[in-house]
Structure formats: C-alpha cells, structure tokens
Design a binder for these strands. Structure first.
Lengths: 138, 138
DNA sequence: CAAATTTTTGCAACATTGTTGCGTTTCCCT
DNA sequence: AGGGAAACGCAACAATGTTGCAAAAATTTG
C-alpha cells in the first residue's frame, strides 16, 4: 500500500514527499471521506496545517481526490476512482452522510440519476448527497 | 411585502424586530439564495454580524429558510415554501448553482429523483445540487 | 554521485468566519 | 404604560483559511 501512494503521486507528476505520502495513505487505508479537520487530527503533529491545506488543494487539482460539500460547512475529501484525470472529475456517484456516525462515504455503485432542468439551464455537474443511517449504524 | 414579512414572523411565533424584518425582506424581494456574507454586505452596517448569524439560525429552525451546501464552503440560505413546518423541512427540490454569475437558485418545480441505495442504508434526506449555466447567463 | 535547480515545507502573520457570555435595549403581553 | 421575556450589540475568543518568505527537501542535470 505504501508503494501504491508513491505510484499515484508519480502518475500525477507530483513530487513524492512525506506529507503527501502520509495524507494519501490515510485515504487509501480508510473507507470514507475525510475533512481537513479529520486529517489534521490524525497527522497534525507531524505536518503543518498549511501543508495539509496545500496538499488537499493539489490533490483536488490533480484529480486524486474530489470534494463533497456538506450541510455543516465542512468540505469532505474522498479518493477519486481511476477515471478522474487532472482537472477533470468524473465522480458522478452518490455521496452518503450518516447522521449517526457522521461518516461520509462514496456510493461508487450508485450513479446520480438524470434530472430534467427547466429551459435555459444547462448543467455541467450534478452533486447528490443523501443523508440518513449507514449500514454500519443500523 | 413589508407586511408579508411581519406575517411570516408572526406565523412562526417570532418576535418582530427590525433585523428579522430586514433580513426576511431580502429573501422575499430577491430571487436566489443568500449566504451569510451576502446578507452582511447588504445590511452589514445596520446590524451586527452576530445578529445575522442568530437570525439565520432561528429562521432555519423555524422552517422559514433552508440551507444549501455548496462546494466553496459557503452555506446558502433560501426561502422555504409554505409546506415547511417548524423543524420539518420538505424542500425536496433541486438546487442550481450558476458557475457564471455565482447565484444559487431553487428549482422549485424540479423534484429530486428517487435513488436506490445499497442494502442497509436508509435515507432521511436527499440534497441535489446542479451546477452549470443559468438561464440568465446564457 | 554531487551540485544546481526547482519544488515543497514550516513559520509567522494576517484575514475571514463562526461562537459565547453578558449587560442593555427592544418587544410583547396585560 | 409597566413588567417580564426575548433579542441585540459588543467584546472577546475559537476555528478556519490565506499569503509571503526563508529554510529544507526533492528532482534534475552534469
């Protein structure tokens, strides 16, 4: 798995640094999405807050992670699947936020249903966030 | 319209104060959603920042407005339609964020399509945010 | 492999956003 | 109009996010 983080970074033409490896491995090992705050709590003593911001920023740009807006104003980040290229995200899957455990997960197999917009509107991206109780909290 | 603001406040059993009337009338007159920042810019000299936070908070609780999470970490607030009762929102319509003008609007006539979740997940709320170009920016 | 160059990091300082406590003002009810 | 409750404004603080710059690390080049 350690090697995998390196590969991903190399693939996206990013310098391989400790912070990037560490943060990326958090995503690779964990199941759900992480907020800046989550990451800071897990690696906060090791890396500067600013570094985490910049790392997430560049991961976003390079298509390594995508962001998920949530109601409580905390942006969540989650790994992209392989289809995501630099700057072009194709994460048209549904996101799920559990009201019990607070975790946010990507439902990779659930695609966002089509929606018909009124005349004059054109869509370039659709985000769907379902909240409720996840399977682990039942 | 001024009277309407008073009526809504009375209906929800809120004291009628200048700040609440003013903020509510912003929503009644405007078309789209407003963020805290938008409101602060429009009435900021008149009312304290804290008052705006508290007013939005109580409008949310009383079902006068609902909140719309957006990708740039700025919560938008928009008027609920009448069906929304205190604490119980029924705003199952699609939200649209225009990438050109930045406005967020409620597409009241577009209901969020149903989505089938994996086993074990149960949903209590679904949020759908479409971004693209709105009809005024075409 | 070591030097040169580029990139990234950490620090400091600052800006913005959101929260809390408390005394004063305003609103509501009779 | 007066008494009690609710809301406001202020101040202070906490959390979150941004920017510039020198030091450190990574990558490239000879």
């Amino acid at each position: 798995m350690e090697k995998k983080a390196d590969d991903i970074l190399k693939e996206r033409q990013l310098s391989i640094t400790d912070s990037r490896k560490k943060i990326l491995s958090l995503f690779l090992h964990g199941t759900g999405a992480l907020s800046h705050n989550d990451i800071e709590k897990k690696v906060g003593e090791r890396f500067d807050r600013v570094t985490i911001y910049r790392t997430l920023q560049i991961f976003l740009e390079k298509g390594i992670v995508h962001s998920i807006p949530t109601a409580d104003n905390s942006i969540q980040y989650a790994l992209c699947r392989n289809e995501c290229g630099s700057g072009h995200h194709h994460d048209n899957h549904v996101h799920f936020v559990c009201k019990h455990c607070g975790n946010t997960v990507c439902l990779e197999d659930v695609t966002v249903p089509a929606v018909k917009l009124p005349k004059g509107f054109s869509s370039s991206q659709v985000e769907m966030i379902v909240s409720g109780i996840c399977k682990d909290c039942r």
